[in-house]
């Protein structure tokens, strides 16, 4: 299992390399540069600036230099926020994003599996239909619609929660909920479908034939198999939550790295964009590895060789 993990980590290296390369060259191939937006800089100053950031070197050399720096954990200075390094910005933003993202995933798993399992066990009942209707709503209505609506109703009309900003617990509620809702919906639909499928399997019939009480049949025989698809979904869920956080952080004005990313892209802040891409790509790769390992632990049929 350990060697499997190591091997997976090793195969992650080329993937990461491809991601960095694509992002790097795509950004450089695009017209425009980080110093375009401001008032026209005197030629000499701009040349100095470019030399300072090594932008005057051939692209390949720049890429090599960048890779070398990343290996040392150095993402370089931000082009836009001149007083900060990318590392400093990521260090400030990541815990914020992690907090709302992590909570959202946690909510999705807890609420989603419970609701989905209950719906499956009461298939075609009123509970089932209402859970599935809510889930369908959660999936179809995008969070950039849900978020303003929640803000409008709870924040503006009812004034029970703050509309934006960051720092207090109340301020975290709306963005977290808006981020979690679609994932809760996905997980509950997934759980319901797989639970129904498992309940129709032959081994559940065997468990019933053995005269086990229904709750034992469900918890011991059905639950684990029913939750395996949810475990597999955690990887894509993370990616979806990261994507969603871009919008949520923008809407609520949260100082996380999702918002940085959009602004940095608009500002052509090369190093910051790269930093965010590398960080999130590594995160997703790492999480997918964890998910595979958990899956292997849960499913005795998976062998690591």
């Amino acid at each position: 299992m350990l060697s499997y993990a190591v091997r997976r980590l090793l195969t992650a290296i080329p993937t990461l390399f491809v991601i960095i390369a694509v992002a790097f060259f795509m950004m450089r191939a695009a017209p425009g540069g980080p110093f375009d937006g401001e008032r026209q800089l005197p030629e000499a100053i701009e040349r100095n600036l470019r030399a300072h950031y090594h932008l005057d070197e051939p692209l390949v050399m720049q890429f090599g230099r960048y890779l070398g720096n990343i290996l040392q954990g150095d993402f370089g200075p931000s082009f836009k926020y001149r007083d900060f390094t990318v590392n400093e910005l990521l260090e400030a933003g990541f815990p914020v994003s992690l907090q709302i993202g992590g909570t959202a995933i946690l909510l999705a798993v807890l609420i989603g599996t419970t609701a989905g399992a209950i719906a499956a066990l009461r298939q075609n009942s009123a509970i089932d239909y209402s859970v599935m209707a809510v889930a369908m709503t959660g999936i179809t209505i995008p969070n950039f619609v849900v978020a303003p609506f929640l803000t409008l109703v709870l924040g503006v009309y009812l004034s029970v929660l703050p509309v934006g900003g960051w720092g207090s617990l109340q301020q975290a509620i709306l963005p977290t909920v808006a981020l979690a809702l679609p994932q809760i919906a996905y997980v509950s639909r997934l759980t319901r479908a797989s639970m129904i499928e498992v309940l129709h399997t032959n081994y559940i019939r065997t468990a019933r034939a053995k005269g086990l009480p229904e709750h034992v049949t469900i918890t011991r025989h059905a639950l684990k198999a029913a939750l395996l698809p949810v475990v597999s979904y955690l990887g894509p869920a993370t990616a979806a939550v990261i994507t969603g956080s871009v919008v949520i952080e923008t809407i609520f004005g949260i100082p996380g790295i999702g918002r940085y990313f959009v602004q940095a892209a608009l500002n052509r802040d090369y190093t910051l964009v790269m930093g965010v891409v590398v960080l999130y790509a590594s995160l997703i790769i790492l999480l997918n590895l964890c998910v595979d390992l958990i899956y292997g632990y849960l499913d005795p049929k998976v062998r690591y060789d």
């Binding site: 399997t201 032959n202 081994y203 019939r205 065997t206 034939a209 025989h221 198999a225 005795p300």
Partner: peptide, 14 residues
């Protein structure tokens, strides 16, 4: 008690 046709799927794989 009852046993079934398909022993491959009648036991809980987990």
């Amino acid at each position: 008690s009852m046993i079934f046709q398909d022993p491959m799927t009648s036991l809980n794989p987990y």
